[in-house]
């Protein structure tokens, strides 16, 4: 059973905020990752998509500072990405309906959820472009160049065709779907997310208090 829409949105926000508040703490980031992988094991399959991006963060922070800092920042970025992906796990209808529950106007909610779905469509498109480009490229560089060219054109065509499809279907900005009753799993996940937030707040204030004491006691 999937996590319910409202729970997923709130938990995603809580977990992301926790990482920021804790000052990208390694402990909080690890806790967030453990939580995400426990409740959304399939999300782990997305890791390989982010490897180049994470490598970039790791190497640049390693060059500019220390190994500890680069591990810390890469882990935090990865945890933020994973907690954000919780939302992409929702269906278009559930996501938009959950947004309207939080008083987001219907047309906005539908637009956001359609944009979210478009990400998946574009992901498929880029894979197809890769397949096509690989067949007639001599080098990796040529493949990437061809993918970029085809994908740019396709992305523009996609946006036009989405607008056409919405027009044809009489788009009036009404969201579809209905809200599910949160299950026990939802409640547990939400409570654990709140717990992570409390921990990160404690960490935040502990740092503040420690800093204040240091300043006060300084001769």
């Amino acid at each position: 059973m999937k996590i319910e829409g409202r729970t997923a949105i709130v938990s995603s926000l809580l977990l992301t905020t926790s990482i920021y508040i804790s000052g990208f703490s390694i402990y909080i980031s690890t806790l967030v990752l453990v939580l995400v992988f426990l409740f959304f094991p399939k999300i782990i399959l997305n890791i390989k998509k982010f490897i180049p991006f994470l490598m970039f963060f790791f190497l640049s922070s390693f060059i500019l500072s220390s190994l500890y800092y680069s591990i810390k920042i890469t882990l935090s970025i990865f945890a933020i990405l994973m907690s954000g992906l919780i939302v992409t796990n929702l269906s278009t209808s559930e996501f938009s309906k959950a947004l309207t529950y939080f008083k987001i106007p219907e047309s906005w909610a539908l637009s956001v959820s359609l944009a979210l779905r478009m990400l998946r469509v574009l992901e498929t498109d880029i894979c197809r472009c890769f397949e096509a480009a690989k067949l007639d490229s001599k080098s990796k560089f040529e493949t990437y160049f061809k993918v970029l060219k085809a994908f740019t054109a396709i992305a523009v065509l996609r946006s036009v065709s989405l607008a056409e499809a919405l027009y044809c279907k009489g788009y009036s900005g009404k969201v579809l779907g209905e809200l599910r009753k949160p299950s026990l799993k939802d409640v547990v996940f939400l409570l654990l997310s709140i717990f992570v937030l409390i921990l990160s707040l404690l960490l935040f204030f502990e740092n503040k208090i420690y800093f204040a004491i240091c300043v006060t006691l300084k001769p």
Binding site: T92, S93, S161, E164, K169, Y171, V175, L176
Partner: peptide, 28 residues
């Protein structure tokens, strides 16, 4: 109601039932 040539371009929702119901919801 126009159904255009490329089906790939007209799909909006994740599930089949939602896709079929989408125009009805838009019509109230």
């Amino acid at each position: 109601f126009l159904i255009t040539q490329y089906p790939e371009e007209q799909i909006i929702c994740d599930n089949v039932l939602e896709e079929v119901a989408f125009p009805l919801i838009q019509r109230g």
